[in-house]
Amino acid sequence: MSFNLHPLINNGITAGSSSFSGGKLSCHCKASPVTVSLTSNIAHNHACGCSKCWKPSGAIFSIVGVVPRSALSVASGESKLYIVDKDAVIQRHACKECGVHMFGRIEVDHAFHGLDFVHVELSKEKGWQEVQFAAFVSSVVEQGLVAPEEADKVRQQLKGLGLSTYDALSPGLMDAIAAFVAKKNGVLRESKL
């Protein structure tokens, strides 16, 4: 059985370009779409199974990467944006008309403050960083998108694409969060490397 992971990866992963320098994202509105300009490529691009990220219809994962906050600006349609969940750490700004999440921003003290979360599938430009890993894979079971006995089949399909699978974020990102918390708590040990 093959799962509809996401249209960008169902048939394989397309490599990005290290020299790619950004582009525009547009919501799905035919008339007066919200557009967001990015002046850099993304980083940490991944398939995300969490319940908060916007997913295309029928897909069980979103594809989301990050850019520095300074690299993102709303080019048009800003009045159409609203925050999906004001209590969430990531303030996801979505179009009021079509529902597409245009970007997520962290406004609180957090390891990822200063990074904006984006879905580059909303861009016509090619060259964005390819998907690097899959995160929050077990969340697709929690949401009822996949039966518990099928979770390993989803992981195998992702691994068949060359993606490591995690039930949180990748180890490097989890280490960044842990280091942020340790520093905040005054217990960060200095590295001897």
Rank of each mutant, 00 (worst) to 15 (best):
N45M: 10
W54M: 03
T14L: 08
K52S: 10
N41E: 09
F180S: 06
A168Y: 02
C29M: 05
S51D: 13
K192R: 10
S51A: 11
S37Q: 13
A75G: 12
K80L: 10
G23H: 01
Y82N: 14
V66L: 08
V154H: 00
E121G: 15
E78M: 11
K24G: 03
S164H: 08
A182P: 00
M1L: 08
V108K: 09
S138T: 14
I106R: 13
S40F: 00
L72Y: 03
A182C: 09
E142A: 11
N4Q: 09
V141W: 00
D167A: 04
G160N: 08
A75K: 07
V187T: 15
V118F: 00
Q129C: 06
Q132P: 07
K24E: 10
E107D: 15
S164Q: 12
G114P: 05
T35A: 06
Q129Y: 03
L72H: 04
S70W: 06
G77R: 03
D152F: 02
I13L: 12
F136A: 03
N185S: 04
A151M: 08
E190V: 02
H44Y: 09
L122R: 13
C98R: 06
E121K: 04
R92A: 06
V64D: 06
A179P: 03
E107N: 11
S191K: 03
S138N: 13
